[in-house]
Write a protein that binds this DNA or RNA. Structure first.
Lengths: 352, 352
DNA sequence: CCTGGCACTCGTTGAGTGTGAGTGCCAGAC
DNA sequence: GTCTGGCACTCACACTCAACGAGTGCCAGG
C-alpha cells in the first residue's frame, strides 16, 4: 500500500480535509459520484482537476472515498462520512419555522401516546426519512393512585394512575371473591403505603412487607399485598417502538431495490434489531450517529441512524431518532433529532 | 368485432369455460402467460393447439383474456377472473391443520385487541399476503359498569366497563371540584339507569333524562348526567384498521415496481381508502371479492381484495380480509377469509 | 509543487441480429 | 361443420458490437 508519507504522518492535510468536505457535500446534494473537475469548480480552492486527482488518490488510499468504477467520480465511504461528521461538518441551526411546528405539536396537554406518535411523525415529516421513538420507560413514573373495581365473580380490574395523568388497567383473576368493601380497604392500604413511589420501588416495598408482616397481620392486608404484587408485576407494553414515515425510504435511489426495501421493512415489523440498537444509545447522552455498517446490523448497511435520548426530570427515559440513507444531510438532521428529543422531554416533563 | 355467433348467443360454450378455467389455474400457479400448446396439454380436452387458439380468440373478443403482446400467451383480465370466481371455481375445503391453528390462536380468553391482531396476523401468515381487520364496532357493546375516580383538582377519570371485560378510560375536565362521595353517588345513579344498554342507547337515555327532569332533580344528579354525557360522547378509536404482513406483497413480481409498492404502502398508512372499501362490505353478508379495478381505488388496480364480515350475537360488528395480487389462489383464499371471520366472531362472542 | 496533456478504463446507450414462443389464418381431412 | 397441420408472421428477450463520454492515472515540463 503506497501512501504518500505526508498523509500518513500528519493525518490529513488542510487541503485534503477541505476537499473531502466539498466532496461529501456535493455527493449528499446530488447523489452522483463526484469527479475532479466538479470538485475543482465547487471547492473554491483554485486548483486544477489534476492536482485534485492526486489528493483524491490519497483519500482513496486512506479508505475515505472510493469509486464505484474506474471512470466514475468518487463517493464517500462510511469512514469518509464518519470523518466528515466528526470534524468537518458545521451543524446548521434549525429553521425557525420548523422549531415552531415542533413546539406546536409537542405540547404538555397531550397524553404520552399522542406525544410519542407526534414526535415520530414530526421527525419523519421534517427529515423526509423514517422517524422512530422508543416509548418512555415507566418504571420511574410515580404511582399516584391505585383502585380496584369488581368486575364479575373473581375478576377484578386494577387501575393504576401514574404521574397523576397516565392510566393503566389490568384485569386480575383472584383466588376467591372479594366484596366491594374489601377491595376498597385493600386499595386504601396500598395507597397509604405506596403512593409516590415508582413501580419498581413499589414492588420492592410490597415484597418486603410480605416477608416482614406475614404473621401478625390480618388476612385482608395480606391479600392486598398479593393483589398489589399481581398488579405491578406485568410490565408489558413498555418496550415498544413507534415508527413513522417508513415510506419515505422508498424514494431514495440507493435503497430502491425491492430486496433491500424488503429487508428494511422486515426490520421495522420485527423491531428487535432496532430496539437493541436504540437501547444501546440510552446510556450515551446527546446525539449519536451510526453510519452504514457501524450499527452492526446488516439490514442497515446502506443506512445511517441518528439518535438522541430524551429525559424527564433529568433522567433519561427514552430514545428517538431517524433512519435514512447514508447519503443524508447530516448537518440538518442532527439538530432536528436533537431539538425534537429536547422538546419531547420538555413536553413530557412539564405535564405534572 | 366479429365474434362467432355461437359464443354471442349462448354466452359461453362448455369448452370455452373449461379452457378459461384451465388458463386461470395455470396462470395463477406459474405467473406466466399461457400459450395454446400448454393449454392443450393441461386442460385435458384432447384438442390441438390450433383449435384452442380459436377459442382463445373468442375469449379475447369477449374481454376475458388478453395477451401482453402478440407472441406471448394469454392472461386473464379482471373480467376473466370475475367469471372464474363467480362460476368456474371450486372452493377447496381448508386444510385441517390450518383450521386447528386458527382455532388455537383465536380463543375467547384473549382481549379484543389481541384477538384482532391475531386474526390479522393469521390471515397474512396463511395466505402469504397482507391481512387486515376492521376493529369491532363498540356501539352495541353493553355497558356493565361505570365508575369515576378523582385525579387532581377538577380532573376525573371515567372508567367504562363494556361487556364485563373491556375497559375504556376517559379523562374528563369538570367545571368544579367534586368530592369522592359525590362522584360515588353520581356513578351509582348512572349505573342504576344505564347498565345493560349499549353506548348509543345510553347516550339517548341521558339526553332524554336531561330534558325530562331538569327542574325537579337535585343538582348532583344533573351533574351526573352531564358527566355521563361527556364520558360517552367521544367515540374515537373505534374506526381503526389493523394490518399485518404487508411485506408479503413485496414478493409478488406483478407488484414489485417500487412505484406501485410505494402507492400501496401509502394506502396502508393512510387507511382512509381501505376503510371506505371495508365499510361498504359491512352490509353485504358473506365473502366479497374485489378484483383489480373493481374496488374503485386506483392503488388497488393490480390487487384483489377478499373480505368477510364477522358478527357477534348475530349482529355484524366488523370486517376482515386480505389484499394480494389479482393473481391469487382464490379457491384457497376465500375459505381462509371466511373461516377466519367466523372464528373471530365466535371468539368475540363466547367471551361473555 | 502544480498543471496540461495523453492514454486508458469502463459504464452507458443504441443499433443490429438471432432465437423462440406464440399467434392468425387457411386449406384439407374426417 | 368441426378439427387440425402447416405456414407466415410478430414480437419480447438476449446478445453482440461500436461509439461515446466522463473520469482516471501518470508523466513531463513549468
Amino acid at each position: 500500500m503506497k501512501t504518500s508519507p505526508k498523509t500518513q504522518s500528519q493525518a490529513l492535510s488542510e487541503r485534503a480535509r477541505l476537499l473531502l468536505r466539498a466532496l461529501v457535500e456535493s455527493y449528499v446534494r446530488d447523489g452522483q459520484p463526484v469527479g475532479s473537475r466538479t470538485l475543482a469548480r465547487t471547492a473554491g480552492l483554485d486548483l486544477s482537476p489534476a492536482s485534485i486527482r492526486n489528493v483524491m488518490a490519497d483519500l482513496e488510499d486512506l479508505g475515505l472515498v472510493s469509486s464505484p468504477h474506474t471512470s466514475a467520480g468518487r463517493i464517500p465511504t462510511s469512514l469518509g462520512y464518519r470523518l466528515f461528521v466528526d470534524s468537518l461538518l458545521e451543524v446548521k441551526p434549525l429553521d425557525s419555522a420548523e422549531v415552531r411546528t415542533l413546539k406546536q405539536r409537542l405540547t404538555p396537554d397531550m397524553d404520552t401516546k399522542a406525544l410519542v406518535e407526534s414526535a415520530s411523525d414530526l421527525l419523519s415529516a421534517i427529515t423526509q426519512m423514517a422517524g422512530m421513538v422508543r416509548v418512555p420507560r415507566r418504571d420511574h413514573a410515580a404511582l399516584s393512585q391505585i383502585e380496584f373495581l369488581k368486575l364479575s365473580g373473581r375478576q377484578v380490574l386494577a387501575i393504576l394512575v401514574m404521574n397523576k395523568r397516565e392510566v393503566q388497567n389490568r384485569i386480575l383473576e383472584l383466588d376467591r371473591e372479594y366484596s366491594h368493601a374489601e377491595l376498597q380497604q385493600m386499595a386504601n392500604y396500598l395507597n397509604q403505603h405506596l403512593v409516590g413511589r415508582d413501580l419498581r420501588q413499589a414492588r420492592e416495598q410490597i415484597l418486603k412487607e410480605m416477608k416482614a408482616v406475614r404473621e401478625h397481620m390480618n388476612t385482608l392486608m395480606l391479600a392486598a399485598i398479593e393483589l398489589g404484587e399481581k398488579a405491578f408485576c406485568d410490565d408489558e407494553g413498555t418496550d415498544d417502538l413507534v415508527f413513522a414515515g417508513q415510506i419515505h425510504l422508498m424514494d431514495y435511489a440507493e435503497l430502491s431495490s425491492v430486496e433491500k426495501l424488503r429487508n428494511l421493512f422486515e426490520a421495522f415489523t420485527e423491531k428487535r434489531q432496532l430496539l437493541t440498537l436504540l437501547d444501546n444509545c440510552i446510556s450515551a447522552e446527546g446525539v449519536q450517529i451510526f453510519i452504514g455498517q457501524e450499527s452492526g446490523h446488516q439490514v442497515l448497511d446502506d443506512c445511517s441512524v441518528v439518535t438522541a435520548p430524551y429525559s424527564v426530570g433529568g433522567r433519561i427515559v427514552g430514545v428517538l431518532g431517524v433512519i435514512g440513507p447514508t447519503r443524508m444531510a447530516y448537518e440538518r438532521i442532527i439538530p432536528v433529532v436533537d431539538i425534537t428529543a429536547r422538546l419531547l422531554g420538555a413536553a413530557l416533563n412539564s405535564r405534572n
